[in-house]
């Protein structure tokens, strides 16, 4: 198993946010992490990356227990994170943002530029001057430049124009088709479900349901995802 999360518990200060989350991603699999706002999706991702290390339970990446490892070690184990909210290095150029993250592997500058031609057009531009969609492409490109074994996308299309969203989903579908393992958090079910091999739903910091997208009935959607 590429990623194996077992019964993790995480806290923000004294308040507990995760009460036992189970999650796994196999090689080449795309898993959708779902749930209403505040249910623990981003906290789970932060716990996997040890940005907010879990206080109980275990996270294993390719069999390696991540307990006590620093965030840069987690990245080196093969986790490529695209954090929520288009987090680029605003005062570096597009090229420098990608270059800084580069690690040897099949993902090179050329391939990222081919996936997102807009980035090539803007390569000398400062990241802060890009549109929201372009910044998101850059954040994905930067994660790919680390040549990850598992790409984690946290709300990658949130707040973007529909046309740009389509571009991002197109890229995600292509990455999946190429065999990259993906853990994706997104609210657009119509795009998310066709991409996912499996869904995991969180409720109140716990894994509440797990199964194939086809088994996610309208009733389940209303129960766990409706507002």
């Amino acid at each position: 198993m590429l990623l194996d999360v077992t019964k993790i518990e995480a806290f923000y200060g004294a308040s507990q946010a995760l009460f036992g989350v189970d999650l796994s991603v196999a090689e080449g699999e795309a898993v959708a992490l779902m749930g209403r706002n505040g249910m623990g999706k981003t906290t789970t991702i932060r716990a996997i990356c040890n940005l907010n290390p879990p206080r109980a339970g275990a996270v294993k990446i390719c069999g390696t227990d991540t307990k006590g490892k620093r965030p840069h070690h987690i990245a080196k184990l093969g986790i490529g994170l695209v954090p929520e909210g288009r987090r680029c290095f605003p005062n570096l150029t597009v090229h420098e943002n990608l270059f800084a993250a580069a690690r040897p592997g099949q993902w090179t500058l050329e391939r990222v530029n081919e996936l997102f031609p807009r980035l090539e057009e803007r390569h000398a531009q400062m990241a802060r001057s890009l549109s929201g969609g372009e910044q998101q492409m850059l954040a994905i490109g930067r994660a790919l430049m680390t040549n990850p074994r598992l790409l984690i996308l946290d709300e990658a299309t949130e707040g973007l124009a529909p046309v740009i969203r389509q571009d991002i989903w197109k890229a995600i579908r292509r990455l999946k088709a190429e065999g990259l393992s993906i853990l994706v958090v997104d609210k657009t079910l119509s795009e998310l479900l066709p991409v996912a091999d499996r869904c995991v739903i969180l409720e109140n910091g716990r894994s509440a349901w797990s199964g194939r997208p086809a088994d996610l009935t309208t009733e389940l959607q209303d129960r766990y995802l409706g507002v």
Partner: peptide
């Protein structure tokens, strides 16, 4: 480049393995 990136955001740099 990584040094300048670290100045701008330490956590983001760590998440790309630096």
């Amino acid at each position: 480049t990584a040094l300048q990136a670290a100045r701008q955001n330490e956590v983001r740099v760590a998440t790309v393995g630096i």
